[in-house]
Design a protein around this nucleic acid. Structure first.
Lengths: 164, 164
DNA sequence: TATTGTTATACTCTATAACTATA
DNA sequence: TATAGTTATAGAGTATAACAATA
């Protein structure tokens, strides 16, 4: 709802609300990123998992599930897929054989490098039309919004599938 | 993927990418809006439909489906629900009895007014922490991004369910 | 034959709850 | 008994395709 003044008389929104633009652009950016990484045979949730493992190697599946805002059961299939492709490794903890510690393999690290390039291209495609100064401005404003909303760098608010 | 430099050495993202922030904030804003309108017993897709009908009364279901980026079959249930609650009205076209023309009822117009107030409160909650000047800056930057990406005011890029 | 709306069906994604194995 | 991971099941949401009425 961006009808800033949907008063009884029914006004047409001359100005799309900021939150409407945020939701619209956010969904658009996420979808475009999904298309981009589909060429690498990766899905957004897989990408989020890779990112999480890369950032903090050795975490348990439950810890990562908490970080990503999803359930432990959901992680099983995700890790399975990446492990079968040799990107991620499950290592048993000898002290407590109930949990696994997750690590990137060498191929996983290479994959992260490719993903990093894709992310930069994606960023350029989305921000095309803005000058360097404007991009910095936008980034600063969004960061303040995110901080104000209590959003962390890793966790997402439910829509893990759409995060990029 | 916001690891701006996920180079072979595995760098931790010191700076979240702008597109990551966009996707994260967009999902967050959409979710919060969904929670807000849930108190009115409305879902985001229903809200989008109401908005579409309010903006251009008399359109066919297919036309609206096209606008919202969804399928005609999906509109059936959506319109059913709103019609049963007396917010939207199906009128047969006497000239071509195949299609309906959709209109808001008086209750539908009142509902739009309530939604408008909710949208303003939502906007304030999300933008809290930014000054008026900064909000205007952000709005201008997002508008330019949306224009650059070819996003219109009404249509959404697939994620109609998340639009607010 | 083409088009509007509808229904039936299937598919994707995800969470919940039950299960195992370790502790 | 409690916890990590797993499996089985179920639910929400949506699209595709077949169908009926009208043109």
């Amino acid at each position: 709802m961006n009808d800033e003044d949907a008063a009884p008389g029914l006004r047409i929104p001359a100005r799309a609300g900021t939150t409407f633009l945020l939701a619209q652009l956010g969904a658009h950016a996420a979808q475009r990123f999904a298309e981009r990484i589909a060429e690498l045979e990766l899905t957004p949730p897989q990408t989020g998992l890779l990112r999480s493992v890369a950032q903090r190697p050795g975490q348990s599946q439950q810890a990562i599930a908490g970080q990503l805002g999803t359930t432990p059961s959901r992680l099983v299939g995700l890790v399975d897929g990446l492990e079968q492709r040799g990107l991620v490794e499950r290592r048993r903890n000898p002290d407590d054989r109930r949990n696994y510690a997750l690590y990137l393999t060498e191929a996983g690290r290479r994959c992260m490098a490719v993903l990093g390039r894709a992310a930069r291209q994606h960023e350029d495609a989305i921000c095309a039309g803005l000058s360097e100064t404007e991009r910095a401005q936008l980034h600063a404003l969004l960061t303040r919004l995110a901080t104000g909303q209590g959003l962390s760098t890793l966790a997402h608010p439910g829509y893990s599938a759409l995060t990029d």
